[in-house]
Amino acid sequence: MQLSPDQSIIFHLGSWPVSATIVNTWIVMVLLVGVSFLVTRNLRADQAPGRWRSALELIVTMIESQIQEVTHTGARHVIYFAGTLFLFIATSNLLTVVPGFAAPTSSLSTTVALTLSVLIAIPLFGIVNGGVRQYLHKFIEPSLIMLPFNIIGEFSRGVSLAMRLYGNVMSGAVIAAILLSIAPFFFPVVMDMLGLLTGFIQAYIFAILATVYISSAMAEPPLSKSDKDKKS
């Protein structure tokens, strides 16, 4: 049994084999872009929202509110990035209920790629928000002796994110394979329900952790005049 979509070759592009991981990743991306385009193509402020637009606005509002609770600098700074991560991972995991579809997040290469995007986004958001000097200064807090430990901690975040997402998705596939070999007529329904729940939870956890890491790298918002007067 092939648990990872990397092992399933769909076709060859010249001498390059194209695995199910790549194909399913593009399916998820096309699906997300296509649905977004169809829902928002006739978007007008003076027009009452329909059911699909209301559903999309509800999802965006929920993502924004969750990010707003985590980051102190406002949801608009990271909602596009963290929200996209959540939608991609959630859609990938939820599509496992479709027969023959293997979630690209069950591939270590996909989880590593997602983690690398987070590791790149962390310094970018930090530098854009507070400048290079303030971002680099965080590595020597509270003292210069903490520099190597802070650097190690920065990379360990990425390893933790990748292994957590991959491990949870892969463990779900292993458990499903074991249960299906025991009782193939009863457990598919149960595992589909469990897969929907765990897929949503893993997408939520990954996006929230990415938001927390990005928020920690961003500078504290400047105090207003009233806040300075209260503090003094």
Rank of each mutant, 00 (worst) to 15 (best):
G34K: 06
L197M: 07
L94Y: 01
G131T: 13
P222R: 03
V189E: 07
S160F: 07
L95M: 10
I120M: 14
L94K: 02
G34T: 10
V169D: 09
I67F: 09
A102M: 03
F11D: 08
L56Q: 03
M163D: 15
I151L: 14
F206R: 03
V190L: 14
L147P: 01
T105G: 10
V78A: 08
P222K: 11
A121K: 00
A162Y: 02
L32P: 10
F37E: 09
L85W: 05
L85D: 09
L197N: 01
N93I: 00
I127S: 09
T25Y: 07
A210H: 06
M146I: 12
L31S: 14
R76L: 04
S65C: 07
Y166E: 06
L87N: 10
I9R: 15
V28Q: 02
F206G: 05
Q66T: 05
T61E: 02
G167M: 04
P148N: 08
P5T: 00
R44S: 13
Y213K: 08
S143A: 13
L161W: 00
R157K: 15
L13A: 09
F11E: 12
F125N: 09
F81K: 09
S15G: 14
I201V: 12
L31V: 15
I127D: 05
I27E: 11
T73S: 07
N24I: 02
A48R: 15
L194R: 09
L180M: 09
P104T: 05
P221W: 06
L32R: 06
Q66L: 00
K228N: 13
Q2E: 06
A55Y: 02
Q47W: 00
T111Y: 05
N24H: 12
G158W: 04
Y80H: 14
F86K: 02
Q66W: 08
L179D: 07
I151N: 10
F88Y: 09
I127T: 13
R76K: 13
L31H: 11
S65Y: 14
I205C: 13
S232T: 15
H137Q: 11
A75C: 10
